[in-house]
Simulated assay, not measured.
Amino acid sequence: MDGELLKTLIALGALLLSLPLSAAQLDLQLDASSRTWQTEELLKHPQVQTVTIKDDVSYKKDMTYQVVPVAALLTGLKPEDHLQAVALDGFAAEMAAAPLLNKHGARAWLAIEDPAQPWPPLSAGKPGAGPFYLVWTDPEAGNISPEQWPFQVASIKLMAPVAQRFPALLPDPALKDDDPVKKGFALFQKNCLACHRLNGAGDAQFGPDLNIPYNPTEYFGADFLKRYIRDPQSLRQWPQAKMPGFSAQVLPDEDLEMLMGYLKHMAGRKVRP
């Protein structure tokens, strides 16, 4: 390649990297109150404020953001409603509306990336958490899991409950309401369904199916499966690994047992997609 042309291309690349990010938009599909928010509109929202998140789940350090209370954007919703936050990479977090509407205790905020001051990469060779990132203050008060911190959010949708949309996820209907397997199903929705499908059911485009062709309880010993859920990279390491570990603070041992109980139960209820 001609030397002058190479210099020109390098200079052009440097110029492009130095340009600020373009503004983005957040699509809220909430029936009567549906609307699209532009970055600039959110940064001028009457309730916008600066919040410091201690030990941010995604960045693993304290981070300061311009935020708007999520409750201020979810006008007209009821605590019993069900939402799905969809990220640019296919991550689809299933979320009950109730904690998102809280104004005390664990509180949800929409962090907004200013194109003039972009956030840092999540790690080497990876993008940042923008343009929109759902973060929490005092998450311990609401037992908020890592899957309830979706980043690169593109849309938030009002949806029918998971059990209604995906009957292939349901445990045996003969089980009593207080059966631990049913509690495990609720934990699966909260902690796993954002990344994984099961029996081909779910909206995630991210991780492998957890029942087809094999359920992890069929090829992991119980102790190793627990260890994998707690600290995935202690068993499998690769540069693009994205599964977070679930600490005992987020997923207590009793809950982990019930989650594994649901998975083992579903190994006997395979449904080919």
Results as ranks from 00 to 15, higher is better:
residue 197 R to C: 08
residue 218 E to G: 03
residue 101 L to A: 10
residue 10 I to P: 00
residue 176 K to S: 13
residue 65 Y to M: 05
residue 264 K to Q: 12
residue 23 A to D: 14
residue 90 G to R: 06
residue 104 H to G: 07
residue 167 P to M: 02
residue 244 P to H: 09
residue 161 P to C: 11
residue 22 S to P: 08
residue 63 M to K: 14
residue 39 T to Q: 13
residue 53 I to Y: 10
residue 237 Q to T: 13
residue 238 W to P: 01
residue 110 L to K: 07
residue 244 P to V: 04
residue 151 F to P: 00
residue 260 M to R: 08
residue 260 M to P: 00
residue 164 Q to E: 10
residue 113 E to K: 14
residue 108 A to Q: 02
residue 49 Q to T: 14
residue 220 F to Q: 07
residue 243 M to L: 09
residue 133 Y to V: 15
residue 129 A to V: 12
residue 135 V to L: 09
residue 156 I to A: 09
residue 138 D to Y: 10
residue 262 Y to E: 04
residue 183 K to T: 06
residue 39 T to S: 13
residue 186 A to Y: 04
residue 43 L to E: 09
residue 72 A to C: 11
residue 178 D to I: 01
residue 202 G to I: 05
residue 259 L to D: 01
residue 192 C to I: 03
residue 109 W to M: 09
residue 177 D to P: 03
residue 255 D to P: 05
residue 209 D to P: 10
residue 6 L to A: 14
residue 89 D to G: 12
residue 16 L to C: 05
residue 138 D to E: 13
residue 17 L to W: 06
residue 269 R to P: 06
residue 148 Q to M: 05
residue 97 A to L: 13
residue 198 L to Q: 01
residue 41 E to N: 11
residue 203 D to I: 06
residue 3 G to N: 15
residue 69 P to A: 10
residue 66 Q to R: 15
residue 170 L to G: 05
residue 111 A to D: 12
residue 248 A to L: 09
residue 174 A to Y: 02
residue 146 P to R: 05
residue 255 D to R: 00
residue 128 G to V: 10
residue 225 L to P: 14
residue 242 K to E: 14
residue 128 G to T: 08
residue 257 E to V: 15
residue 131 P to E: 06
residue 269 R to M: 13
residue 102 N to H: 14
residue 32 A to M: 05
residue 124 A to L: 11
residue 253 D to R: 12
residue 101 L to V: 15
residue 108 A to W: 04
residue 157 K to I: 07
residue 208 P to Y: 01
residue 1 M to A: 13
residue 121 P to V: 06
residue 116 A to L: 15
residue 15 L to A: 09
residue 267 A to V: 02
residue 8 T to E: 14
residue 221 G to V: 10
residue 149 W to P: 03
residue 239 P to S: 09
residue 28 L to H: 02
residue 130 G to F: 03
residue 85 A to S: 15
residue 201 A to C: 05
residue 148 Q to T: 03
residue 73 L to I: 13
residue 89 D to N: 15
residue 170 L to A: 13
residue 4 E to S: 13
residue 169 L to H: 04
residue 45 H to L: 02
residue 147 E to K: 10
residue 260 M to S: 07
residue 136 W to E: 02
residue 116 A to D: 12
residue 197 R to A: 06
residue 42 L to A: 12
residue 217 T to Y: 07
residue 254 E to Q: 12
residue 223 D to T: 12
residue 59 Y to E: 01
residue 79 P to Y: 02
residue 28 L to T: 07
residue 131 P to Q: 02
